[in-house]
Design a protein around this nucleic acid. Structure first.
Lengths: 116, 116
DNA sequence: CCGTATCCCCGCTGATACTG
DNA sequence: CAGTATCAGCGGGGATACGG
């Protein structure tokens, strides 16, 4: 009977898996918001259009979270009716690049015949 | 009044944001399972120990999903009691590398003073 | 146009008990 | 050891209506 290895030689700190920006992408729509923001600044209803099926409530919530996380910037123009544009910060762009790698891996998995 | 841009010049295919392996990481514990699998093969109860708080049920479910997705391999040894080892596939390792980039970005965000 | 406030549902997760 | 089966709960997210 093989004894249970309590931990590997180099135990990954628990905070890594639990408390990082991965949690953000885990929330519904969050990754998609970053994805559709892309490099171009985008307005609220444009995003709402891109993210077909999202409710205004959730989009607002996610955008606020992403702002507080330093991933998204909000620009409000004092026009009437109000005009608001959202864009990725530098780290937000970095995040987008990483998201693209996921998409790439996803395609490879599908190419191998796996059902995601 | 600025007209609503229906789509950007190069519209990202919707399947990219919605139907990729990002969905897997969105499920509770999924990213952590991949994380703690690391490079070393790992047994069921070892993973259950690493992922403090996970129930056997969820671990089994996630592992099965990851198998079907081509991210995890299952090796069963015909011993008594049974011995089962899980390890990442090649694409699973690729996924892990990408997860580490997320963790890295998470640290940068925190370094900027943002609360994740 | 850009949100916020409220209500409500159902699907995911945990707890528990059991099996090969 | 490595799971499966069943049930119950709660909270994330949708629908709707309203506000600056």
């Amino acid at each position: 009977m093989v004894p249970l290895r309590k931990n590997r030689a180099e135990p990954p700190p628990r905070e890594c898996a639990l408390s990082n920006c991965i949690n953000f992408l885990s929330k519904t729509w969050a990754a998609s918001v970053v994805w559709y923001l892309g490099e171009t600044p985008r307005r609220f209803n444009e995003l709402k259009y891109d993210l077909e099926g999202i409710s205004a409530k959730m989009l607002a919530v996610r955008l606020k979270e992403l702002q507080e996380a330093g991933i998204v910037l909000r620009h409000e123009r004092p026009t009437s009716p109000p005009t608001v544009e959202y864009e990725l910060t530098a780290l937000g762009c970095e995040l987008l690049l990483t998201l693209r790698q996921f998409v790439n891996i996803g395609h490879k998995l599908k190419a191998e015949g796996h059902a995601l």
